[in-house]
Amino acid sequence: MTSTSSSEPLLVVEDLCIDVTPVGDKKPVPAVRNVSFQVAAGEAVGLVGESGSGKSLTLRTILGLLPAGVKATGGRVLFEGVDLLKAPKKTLKNLRGTGITMIFQEPMTSLNPITKVGEQIIDAARAKHSWSKSDARNHALRLARHMGVPDAENVLSLYPHELSGGLRQRVMIAAALACRPKLVLCDEPTTALDVTIQAQIIRLLLELKDELGMSMLYVTHDLAVVAQLCQRLEVMYSGSIVESGLVSDLFREPNHPYTQGLVNATPDVDAVVDLLTGIRGNAPTLGNWPEGCAFHPRCDFATEECTSGEFSLRDTGDGRASACIHIERLHESTRHGAR
């Protein structure tokens, strides 16, 4: 698949800032600050964080899907060079479907409950191409089969509530990919699924990604899922990216105590390591971010310097970046088996 300029990243997010105005308040509170990352053509990038990290908001800003009271207040979101934050509604509308599309977590609420699922795929396809009804129907059937929907002919005539979670998700993916988008935004699409079904959907997404050459920006809290799907990864905490780099590098040797904490806390079904440790304390709530490095109250390596100042991503070479100033101390302790 040729791209016009394969060296240009498909999506560039630069210094994105998002503010949230809680109900009843007048003062907006920052939810995402100075987030920057890129997605190249054909690449899968993971955006990982826990609750309150701002990862979902970041994702939704790209397509302008922010709820009331939430606004992007700074930075740029460049898709093929066009700033989506400043683009007119018409441009965004044209982009959806063929340029950028999104897959959500809960298919029950993102599929129309009163329309048959086949119709929804057909509608998605016909939104961008002027096909006849029968052509569109065939395309929908083909798509559904391709997504592994068994007995597609029958399933397409059902309503969303009549399908299982896994099937609903396949239908949603079919509808989202009906127009072969260049970039797929995924908002935790497998979190609500059973693990065996999750594995099927992950495999499906991988196959589709290879086949269609599309890029993926995958938001999740599950590190292991990211390991399966993505090449690169951005770790978010309290509205900022704290570490970024190749998945293989990050998990082998994290360059940020939070990433290390997440890795240590992820249960290991192969029980390579017996000790499961969490991160002490609690994630700060919106508007209560600590001064300096947002993670410092929970960090075992924090010093006086961590309590004030700006902590942005610094390049650490090898395509990696981290916001931590004590990477050496982190590696020291890991080397000494303190894990």
């Binding site: 809680p22 009843g24 308040d25 007048k26 002490r280 304390g281 609690n282 700060p284 709530t285 209560n288």
Partner: peptide
């Protein structure tokens, strides 16, 4: 586990 967390301090919000 450290508490009270910042949530406990009641922030005055305009009615």
């Amino acid at each position: 586990v450290v508490g009270p967390t910042p949530h406990l301090r009641r922030k005055f919000r305009r009615p």
